[in-house]
Design a protein around this nucleic acid. Structure first.
Lengths: 121, 121
DNA sequence: CTGTATCCGCACCGATACTG
DNA sequence: CAGTATCGGTGCGGATACAG
């Protein structure tokens, strides 16, 4: 069985329409910082804003905020703000986010394993 | 076993460095059109330029060329030009590309399956 | 048919300053 | 600590014209 048959259910002719929900979600998920944030949270431990900034090296405050908002709206992660001073906010994956991350992890693992060979050529 | 442990091998502390081979390859693979092209070819059938344009709806000639070049340089796909008039060029996945696509397909299948629910909220 | 070359707008993104 | 507001540049990406 060809692996691509999994796609035939939703894209019978192999065509990916320009404006469809799948494209939108795909863009959110595969966005430059979206992947890294989902991966960082894939371990299960809730992470704070500053910790996420540290893990996804190079992300600006603006892009972190924007990405977190998008992923939150899509229901992939949960924002837990404790009413404290100073503020203490934790981000964690929702069940839906965990499903998604479970598919992202093998991808990233494969990439990490082959990246050097790929760029060496 | 947590699924994320697959990443611990390469990112022991869960930190994704700014400038590392993995980031570069990740950006290539998760690029707007890169994913769609890899998925279109994941079926195994070689596709021609014009057919790829049709499948990845909305892609411009410029971006198709650019994306194909990148994926080719990374060794994910093979360009087969037959010396004919008019030109006949076929693109297909390399073994490496097939490995990658095999990880991309379940991701896209999951997204296609949940996209409407996700955006409905 | 399969591209390449060029122009150019605008959206993305980073940097900075500021706030609760 | 955890963000928001604003500005400016830059490179992505679309449109068009052209070539082999």
């Amino acid at each position: 069985m060809k692996v691509s048959s999994q796609l035939r259910t939703h894209f019978p002719d192999g065509v990916f329409p320009a404006r469809c929900p799948s494209r939108t979600v795909l863009d959110h998920v595969t966005s430059k910082w979206g992947v890294l944030i989902l991966l960082a949270l894939s371990e299960g431990t809730p992470l704070r804003w500053s910790e996420l900034r540290r893990r996804a090296q190079g992300v600006s405050e603006k892009m972190l905020a924007q990405t977190l908002r998008t992923l939150d709206q899509d229901g992939f992660l949960h924002r837990d703000a404790r009413p404290e001073v100073p503020p203490h906010v934790e981000y964690s994956l929702t069940p839906r986010g965990e499903e998604l991350a479970a598919l992202l992890v093998p991808l990233m693992a494969w990439i990490a394993q082959h990246a050097e060979d790929i760029l060496a050529e």
